[in-house]
Design a protein around this nucleic acid. Structure first.
Lengths: 207, 207
DNA sequence: AAATTGAGCGTACACGTGTACGCAAAAAAA
DNA sequence: TTTTTTTGCGTACACGTGTACGCTCAATTT
């Protein structure tokens, strides 16, 4: 029953990360998390924390990375669902909302630290969201939009979806369906608005 | 040089509020503000704080009220500008962006506490934003949309504008114009998308 | 087998926090 | 004038915080 050093170290590191994630909630943001609290939850001495992270910010960056990864995986899942047939917009919103319902704290972390108090975290979150936007931009470009309006479209869509997600967090479960439906409507607005603008630009009506 | 009690009390109250607002910045959210810090800045003893507010949350609610008020005043200003001629969308975005540039901390407070850690503040902010959305909804209804799609439209627009505002906060001054322009584009997408949906519903093409 | 490395712990410290309590002094009420 | 009310202050306390420092002890290297 001997474990290698590297393995043990990785375990503890994970314990810290998981402890932090476990403590996040509607009433406890990452910013209001203390090193000692995290260490306690992870069953290590406060000072042992330093063996793994320089300070809380470094842990925060790690968390944002993980959460961003989770988000990207979700979108991959959405894409697979779409390939199997189904409205792009509806399926995407649906998948996203499921994600938020199943792990609200991950979304909370990203959403809250986006306007957070430490510059490092803020830009890290911004980067994660940019991945999102860029991916969507590429997709829209592939459908035949110029880059600029594709980006505008993608950004607006992400803003709307995130907004719906945030609403969903504090909403009673009964309202969630309605929020999702509204988000779909809003995305359709954006999509057909953009389409119309493209039509105007190319000075022809095309399907 | 005698001041009435009520007057003096009001002065101190304002001193506290202003002190709190003064301390808000990119690196200091309301949540990371301590009672003692605020009291220090307001030149009163920590314990005197309690003569005016039950606790920090009550101060927070007051701040949110004030900031919401400021926001609504801005929109009134925008409406006046519009009456004097000018694109609704462009003028609104422009006014909003000016507001953010001139008092970023007020916007930051609303934006950050929207996803904040205390339920009271969160709902207070949500209410302020709802005012915004509802006003816009009414306006859109008056142009001839049904309530539901008007609301969806308004909400999406506010989401997009707030998103642009948030971007603007961390952007270099040179990028701000571009962000504003993009926001205008995005709002136009939403507007013409919604219009098109209405046209489909009424089964006729109308201007 | 001996030496080195490194994760983890316990102690200790200085510091900032919220707030309970009682007192001063001046305005307001009697 | 006397009494009451109320703003504000100072002291005091218990508590949670980040982190410096030195130790142990087992995995790893020599």
């Amino acid at each position: 029953m001997t474990v290698s050093r590297a393995e043990q170290k990785e375990r503890t590191r994970r314990a810290i990360i998981d402890a932090a994630l476990r403590q996040l909630s509607a009433d406890k943001s990452f910013a209001s998390l203390s090193l000692r609290e995290v260490a306690r939850e992870a069953n290590i001495a406060p000072t042992s924390f330093y063996r793994h992270f320089k300070d809380m910010e470094e842990l925060g960056l790690t968390l944002v990375d993980e959460c961003g990864l989770a988000l990207r995986q979700i979108m991959r899942k959405a894409r697979k669902r779409i390939e199997k047939g189904g409205s792009v917009i509806y399926t995407s919103v649906q998948t996203f909302m499921e994600f938020i319902e199943s792990s609200p704290n991950i979304f909370r972390l990203l959403f809250h630290e986006r306007s957070g108090t430490t510059h490092g975290l803020r830009t890290a979150v911004a980067r994660e969201i940019q991945y999102f936007v860029v991916e969507l931009t590429d997709y829209i470009c592939a459908i035949g939009y110029d880059k600029e309006s594709a980006f505008a479209q993608a950004e607006a869509m992400v803003a709307v979806v995130f907004n719906a997600g945030a609403e969903s967090l504090d909403a009673k479960p009964g309202q969630r369906k309605q929020i999702a439906r509204r988000a779909v409507t809003q995305l359709r607005f954006i999509a057909s608005g953009a389409k119309q603008h493209r039509m105007i630009k190319t000075k022809g009506v095309r399907t």
